[in-house]
Amino acid sequence: MKERVASFNPEAEAFKIAAYGHLRTLRLEPPSPERMRRLLRLAVGQREERMVAEATAQLMPATRQALDALVNTQIPGSAADVDQMPLFPYAPSLPR
């Protein structure tokens, strides 16, 4: 099912219709509506993970490191530390 994901919205009506159509083509009895929702969410999640992995594999190592540096920020230890953290630590300083 994850190979057929065209929409990243598991609640999209066209996605549900395609899933039921695929099951009908395979001559399989469809699961309950709640089970189908879970299966569609799972398929979307797996497709998103594969898409991210494929995109990441195409990046240069330096680009990956720069993106990791943006994502891997240190979490403040206390509420006082939060007040001392700049809102945009990598933004250039603006004149006052």
Rank of each mutant, 00 (worst) to 15 (best):
M60Y: 02
P86L: 08
A57E: 12
Y90E: 07
T25L: 08
Y20T: 13
T25Y: 10
A55P: 00
A69H: 02
L42R: 11
E29Y: 02
P33C: 09
E29I: 00
I75R: 09
L87P: 07
F88Y: 11
Y90T: 09
V82A: 04
L26V: 00
A91I: 03
A66W: 00
R24K: 13
R47T: 12
P30E: 03
A6Q: 15
A66M: 03
D81T: 04
A14M: 00
G21C: 07
E29R: 10
M85P: 02
R27T: 05
A80K: 09
D83V: 10
Q58R: 15
E11R: 10
L23V: 02
M60T: 05
P30H: 01
M51L: 14
A53M: 09
Y90S: 09
Q58V: 14
G45T: 06
Y20W: 13
E54C: 08
R50S: 14
Y90I: 05
D81G: 09
P76V: 07
A53V: 02
M1F: 12
S7M: 13
E3V: 02
R38D: 11
M85E: 08
A66E: 00
G45L: 02
R38Y: 09
H22T: 08
M60D: 13
L23T: 03
E11D: 15
R38V: 14
V44R: 04
A57T: 04
A6R: 15
P10R: 04
R35W: 12
P61S: 02
G77S: 10
L70F: 06
V52R: 09
Q84D: 07
A6S: 05
F8G: 07
R50K: 13
L40G: 03
A6F: 01
A6M: 15
E49N: 10
V71W: 05
R64L: 12
P89L: 06
E29H: 02
K2P: 12
Q84V: 06
R64C: 07
Q65I: 01
L94S: 10
P30Y: 00
R4T: 13
R37H: 12
A66Y: 01
E11P: 01
V44N: 06
A62D: 12
T25V: 10
